[in-house]
Every structure is written in structure tokens, then in C-alpha cells.
């Protein structure tokens, strides 16, 4: 019997949170299509089969192979292509993360099948779906003609939730036939540059735009972010000026953030930036321009100068924390 197959993204044995979104979406889709929900994991089973089960997966194909014990786009993509050929799912779903899209594209190239990236809505039967363009600023309705439908879902488009009735999460070993040469794109080393909270996981992000004025003027933003256990982000104009490293950039070509609170200081809110920030649960804009896109889209705003507002907010935070 055919199925819906979810590609589980993981790193060194830990499932990526985005996979919970993929599993949740795929479970709802499988239910409406009347198909079983299965999953595939790469590397040795480390508890991820049971985790997938809590999200509704019935069978979990475990592709344990020396070439899959760390990430490698070609080995993972080839493994997925072989699993698709052998198990003939109707639909294959991954999350639209860097790795999720890359592995699906590798498999699609090998199977010579179309691959629809970053879907936000999929019709039952998957003959038509809606996907993001421009990082989510625009949507495209597409038709898909393929014997197996490969798609990824846009990050943050679907809320993850465990299944009301868990799936069996039954482990089924899957042995791919992989040529040693595929080691050519396997991760050989890692460089850890930050520990603890990161821009994409921070509960609070203090973002600065062109209005901050200089690299040095970010010090008050750093101090406020630190006090709130958050990180500093910035707009593209700022990295183009060389004020902040690109790794701080929030936007279509930077990091997508989804904090509890985004404090956007002196940021006009061009679409390039907005698509990276719009998953924030709450936005506070600090800007002198009441007409700025970021101000009109924010839940709260202070129509003042960030250079005096941020120190005042920091002083108030310190006072309440007894610092």
C-alpha cells in the first residue's frame, strides 16, 4: 500500500524541531488522503523512531549506514531516492530548511522527478499546491504532475503538535546501497562559534537597522539583548555597510527568526527584512517614522529616537531586576 513518507531531518542523532512541523502537516495530509504515515531517518536509531511515533508515524525506515552517520547531501539524497523507489510512497514531505530542501532536491535530481519547495497549502491528492516565492512575500499556486510527489513545507507555516493517537513508530531497517565516493560531500569538521542561545532560537531579538547609525552604536542594543537573554539582529542595509557580520542578518537572505518578542529599532521593514521577521510572536517597533512599514505591522510601537529610548528601557529593566 502506498503512503506518505516524511523525511526526518536530524543532526548527530537529534531530530530537528522543524521535522515536527513536517510530521504534523504530513499526518493531517495522510488522514485526509486515507494513507498511512511513514518516516525515514538517516543514521543509527537514537530514539527518533519513537519521537516520530508520537507525531503519528506508523513505520519508521531506519537507514543505518557508515556514510549516513553524519550529514552529507548526496548520500542522504541517494538514500531517499532508493527508499522512494522501493517503497513507492504517493507523497514525500520534508521541512523547508537548508537540509530539508537540499536532500529533497538531491533525491529529485536522482529520480528525475519535480520537487516543489516551501509549500504553505497542499490539496488532497497533491495535484495542486501553494508555495512561497520571494521568501514568503509572494505565493505561487502550482500544479504538479508526477508519479511520486516530492515537496517541502515552508518553515513556520504549520504549527507542530503531537498526534492525539500516537503511531506505532515501528522500526524497519532500510539498507541503502551507497558508493564510497558519496563521502565526497559528507561533513568533515565542525567549527563552533557560539554556545547557548542563537539568533534563530533566541526568545528575544533586538534588531537594529540603518537608523542605528554606526557599528559602535550597537553597544546599547547588545546590552539590552543580554539583559533579556536574547540576541542582536540587523537588516541587510547594516551588513552591507559592514556594521555587523552577516550571521546577524534577519531576512530573506539571512536568518528567519521566530522569537517571543522582536524589538525592531530603526528598521523601516522592507520586504527583504520583513519575511525573516514575520514569524515573530510579538513585535515592538522603535522608530521616529510613524509611517514605516515595521511600525504599521508591529503590535506595539514607540515613536521615538532609539538612541535615547534604548538606554531608558535598559535602565528600567535594570531597576525592576534590582541590578
Amino acid at each position: 500500500m502506498t503512503s506518505v513518507l516524511v523525511v526526518i531531518e536530524s543532526d548527530q542523532g537529534a531530530m530537528a524541531p522543524a521535522s515536527h512541523e513536517a510530521l504534523t502537516f504530513a499526518r493531517d495530509y495522510a488522514t485526509s488522503a486515507g494513507l498511512p504515515l511513514n518516516a525515514i531517518i538517516f543514521g543509527a536509531e537514537s530514539g527518533m523512531a519513537a519521537e516520530a511515533g508520537t507525531y503519528g508515524a506508523a513505520t519508521v525506515h531506519v537507514a543505518d549506514h557508515a556514510l549516513l552517520d553524519d550529514f552529507g547531501p548526496e548520500a542522504w539524497g541517494e538514500t531517499l531516492a532508493q527508499a522512494v523507489t522501493q517503497t513507492a510512497p504517493a507523497v514525500v514531505v520534508s521541512c523547508g530548511t537548508d537540509r530539508g530542501n537540499e536532500v529533497l532536491a538531491q533525491a529529485a535530481a536522482r529520480l528525475d522527478l519535480p520537487f516543489v519547495a516551501n509549500c504553505t497549502e497542499v490539496d488532497t491528492g497533491a495535484a495542486e499546491m501553494t508555495r512561497t516565492q520571494w521568501g514568503g512575500s509572494l505565493l505561487e499556486r502550482v500544479s504538479l504532475n508526477a508519479p511520486t510527489r516530492l515537496l517541502s513545507i515552508a518553515p513556520h507555516a504549520f504549527d507542530a503538535s503531537p498526534a492525539p493517537a500516537p503511531g506505532a513508530g515501528m522500526v524497519m531497517p532500510f539498507a541503502p546501497v551507497l558508493d564510497d565516493s558519496l563521502a565526497r560531500t559528507k561533513v568533515v569538521d565542525r567549527v563552533v562559534t557560539s554556545s547557548g542561545v542563537t539568533l534563530s532560537t533566541a526568545p528575544v531579538v533586538v534588531g537594529g537597522g540603518r537608523g542605528v547609525g554606526s557599528a559602535e552604536a550597537y553597544a546599547p542594543l547588545e546590552e539590552l539583548a543580554e539583559l533579556l537573554g536574547g540576541k542582536v539582529g540587523c537588516s541587510r542595509a547594516v551588513t552591507n555597510n559592514g556594521w555587523r557580520p552577516h550571521s546577524d542578518q534577519v531576512g530573506q537572505t539571512g536568518t528567519r527568526i521566530a522569537p517571543e518578542l522582536y524589538i525592531a529599532c530603526g528598521i523601516s521593514g522592507a520586504i527583504q527584512h520583513w519575511v525573516g521577521a514575520k514569524a515573530s510572536k510579538n513585535i515592538l517597533a522603535i522608530n521616529t517614522d510613524a509611517e514605516a512599514n515595521m511600525v504599521t505591522k508591529a503590535g506595539h510601537a514607540v515613536l521615538g529616537d532609539l538612541h535615547t529610548m534604548i538606554p531608558a528601557i535598559t535602565a528600567e529593566v535594570k531597576k525592576r531586576k534590582g541590578l
Binding site: T130, Q133, L138, R141, V142, S143, H300
Partner: peptide, 19 residues
């Protein structure tokens, strides 16, 4: 196998900004 049907704008939640 993928063909464009049409483009559409995402629904923007309009928020009443509290000043």
C-alpha cells in the same frame, strides 16, 4: 512536472499598532 497556475499575495494580518 511543475507548472505555475497563478501568483497570489499572502494574507497579511493587519494589526492595530498600540503606540
Amino acid at each position: 512536472g511543475q507548472a505555475k497556475v497563478r501568483l497570489l499575495r499572502p494574507v497579511e494580518t493587519v494589526s492595530e499598532t498600540v503606540i
